[in-house]
Amino acid sequence: MHTVKSRGAQPVVIRSIPFQIEEKRVLRELRIPRLKYVKELEEEGVAKSIKRAIDRAYTKILGQGCYRTINIKETRQDRVTTEESENLFIGSNMVKLLSRCDHATLLATTIGPALEQLIEDLKQDDVADAYFLDVVGSWMADYMADRVDAIVQTEIHRAGYERTMRYSPGYGDWDLTVQAELLRLVGADVIGVSCTETSILQPRKSVTAVIGWERKA
């Protein structure tokens, strides 16, 4: 027998997400093509800087996430409504994403504030180090979202649905201004994630998103 953990009023919270920083992915984020390992870089100075950023990131990242599955109520021309909110899934992209869905999982993840604090500390005298650390942090924010995404996908499949792509505020015509509403509904304060008046997530290396539960064709 299985149960769907996330379909309650409280989010499912994941406190310490184990992680590995893949050098290949960091190099890709840095737009350095074709290399799999930092040690393959001919320029030793650049390699050292990237390695230093990765090593530092390991000591600063604390991955956390939360997710909650809500029920889709109605699909209209300009939005998809849920039992919890009429103003979350607004726009034609949301209609396209969720029109064949019975449920949607909201998720929020973060790597925590410590890495961005280190970036601030480094910026004065070590801008290159701050830059590389920033890139690693951005990749790892996505990584944490990928980890939670995988758990959500398992729930979706167990319940006999297909998943939609993962969609974040700011994509397409899903306006960034829904951020506050999304954070409220997913209960992201439990992992320390909020947003500014201009919808910037805090800590900055955080991700919010929705994944739809689509009926199989």
């Binding site: 737009r31 350095i32 093509p33 100075g45 990237i50 801008v127 290159a128």
Partner: peptide
């Protein structure tokens, strides 16, 4: 033949 990380590291080195 080189990419932004190289520019960034070189800029810091030059600085």
């Amino acid at each position: 033949k080189r990419f932004i990380p190289h520019l960034v590291a070189a800029a810091d080195t030059m600085k």
